[in-house]
Amino acid sequence: MTRRGQILFFLPALLVFLVFVLLPSTQTLIDSFYSHQGIKHPFVGTLYYRYAVTDPKFHQSLGNNLKYLLWTLLFEVAAGLALAVGLEKNTRFNNFLRVAFFSPAVLSMVVVGLVFGFLFKDGVGVLPGMLNEGRALLTISVISGWASAGFFMVIFLAGLANVPEDVLEAARLDGASARQTFWRIKLPLLKEVIYVALLICFTGAFKAFDLFWVLLQNQEHTSIVSTLLVKEVIRFDNQGYGSTLAVILTVLVLLSVAIIIGAKNLWRRGERRGPL
């Protein structure tokens, strides 16, 4: 194929991506420095950023994002790992269970939210009180764990399948117990996959929206940055501050990715220098 042909092949995708992702992303960044009140749009500099630093609502939302992140590390990633280890053997029954555990991941979060919302509804549902102020965030995390643990299980299963058989065989010959095999052999070999899982879990915790919106969009104790920004834009017509929150959210996502990838590279380098 000619060079020109290649570029022609490349252009449509680039154009769509440019117009509908890159351009508006840049626009968000620009908008965050302007006020959008009324008809005029004056430049306000870093006003909204300075405001965010002291905004108690933003603090609470960000705190909720972080709490949610910690809970999902447990209910999604750790639970997914446990499921993967439990269902590692390739039997018919295990195969069935894997398919079953993954299936909630194909459901719409709106559906999940509506169904659980109904189950937890006070006065009607079978488990009332789960969305009360003290527990709502935990409840949402558990629901999200129910929906996504199977997804992480699948990733970990793929990692476990790559653990070389001869290493396991050698361990067995050495008389290692199942627990020792897991902690000493499998887990270190799963490192690559764990990084990926962390990456998805961290970014997912900041991107979350649907479940929170469907279940409790107006309560402060379940406010997260993404619901806060949507409310700011569509309710209060404050596109400037909404854009600022969007920029902050983007930075948080990119930062967590950078940190995880950085940690991974550091670890690798450390290993190479190590005594081995």
Partner: peptide, 17 residues
Amino acid sequence: LERGAIGGLGDIDAKVL
């Protein structure tokens, strides 16, 4: 309705109750 349920209950649900 348990104590504190008022904060988690939707207006429509209350109406139905």
